[in-house]
């Protein structure tokens, strides 16, 4: 029996059972397990279960039925096994194929095409060769990405050396990873920091040396209500929803002009060295607005809101008065 045959037969065995089947029964049933030593069987069976789970097959274990004594029973529930029906329109199915071009990472690109294979098997006609939109790509350049991603999927505890932002000191950290997130091109792992007893975020590029996997898969639960999407959004700059008025010299502050929603040319300005224009620009916080205007030095100044104007004055005065 080849390994593929063993895996597929194990899957069918677990799938067609009405009840949990004990490990010993599984061993007696499948020839390659029966022929292996006790240790070899344990190792093989553990790995096989993990591989089936990685394919998406929900192998569940149930301990201690009175009838079985202490033994653990296994099965796959047919309802959990099946891909629920997805009814995509022809247009929707046609664009899904573009997804294969997004990931610049072998593991994630592979997972995407495996997902498409399953959707195709369910009857969707997916076009893998559409080229009419240039797909943006997501790159993963962090060498530690794979170990954190895999551990999040398998729920395996990790420990690693971590260097905090701008600090020279490296400390050993212990984490129950929940997932990896990227914001503005930087990758982070999020999870429960077991040393501090709190959820924490670690930037992957600050992880030093080798990451150790500690213990078995499925060692902890990811708390309900953890939404990686909200968390990732909270890492990113807030959307620009407020409006400011900024005076800029004619022909200056070109990048600010590009983002302006309105330009009023030839208005009175703070001096008469040049002409001035008034820009209406969106911003997310007064501090961000001041950052973006100060870079233009004596070519731009905030007219409104007053709060941002005062902040600009305070910040500049402090430099001047040193």
């Amino acid at each position: 029996m080849t390994k593929s045959e063993r895996l597929l037969n194990l899957l069918i065995l677990l799938l067609v059972q009405r009840n949990y089947i004990t490990k010993q029964r599984i061993r007696q049933t499948i020839p390659s397990y029966r022929e292996a030593s006790e240790d070899a069987f344990e190792r093989m069976f553990d790995r096989d279960k993990d591989e089936l789970r990685a394919l998406g097959a929900p192998v569940v274990a149930e301990a201690t039925d009175a009838y079985f004594g202490d033994e653990v029973g296994y099965r796959i529930r047919p309802d959990d096994f099946a891909l629920p029906g997805i009814d995509l329109t022809a247009d929707e199915a046609a664009v899904v194929g573009l997804a294969t071009r997004v990931w610049q990472h072998a593991g994630l690109a592979g997972a995407t095409s495996d997902a498409l294979t399953k959707l195709s098997a369910a009857g969707l006609e997916i076009d893998r060769r559409r080229l009419d939109i240039a797909a943006p790509v997501v790159t993963v350049a962090d060498e530690h990405f794979d170990v954190f991603w895999q551990a999040s999927l398998e729920r395996i505890r990790l420990s690693f050396d971590y260097q905090r932002s701008g600090s020279q000191e490296v400390t050993r950290r212990h984490l129950e990873p929940w997932g990896v997130v990227s914001s503005s091109g930087r990758w982070y792992v999020v999870g429960q920091d077991t040393d501090r007893g709190e959820p924490r975020l670690f930037r992957l590029s600050r992880v030093r040396g080798k990451v150790s996997r500690n213990g078995k898969a499925g060692a902890y639960d990811i708390p309900a209500g953890i939404n990686l999407r909200d968390l990732t959004r909270s890492l990113s700059p807030a959307p620009a929803t407020e409006t400011a008025l900024v005076l800029v010299r004619s022909d200056a502050a070109l990048s600010l002009r590009r983002t302006a929603t309105e330009v009023e040319a030839g208005v009175p300005g703070p001096d008469t060295e040049t002409g001035w224009d008034r820009l209406r620009v969106a911003y997310s916080s007064p501090a961000n607005l001041v950052d973006d205007v100060l870079v233009f030095g004596h070519d731009a100044c905030i007219e409104a809101p007053q709060e941002a104007r005062e902040l600009a004055i305070t910040r500049l005065s402090e430099v001047v008065s040193r």
């Binding site: 998406g56 099946a82 997804a99 997004v102 593991g107 997972a111 399953k118 959707l119 369910a122």
Partner: peptide, 15 residues
Amino acid sequence: PLRLSAAEASAITVA
């Protein structure tokens, strides 16, 4: 077909 694994689901939805 088998349901999407956690890896497949995240890879395709994020893409």
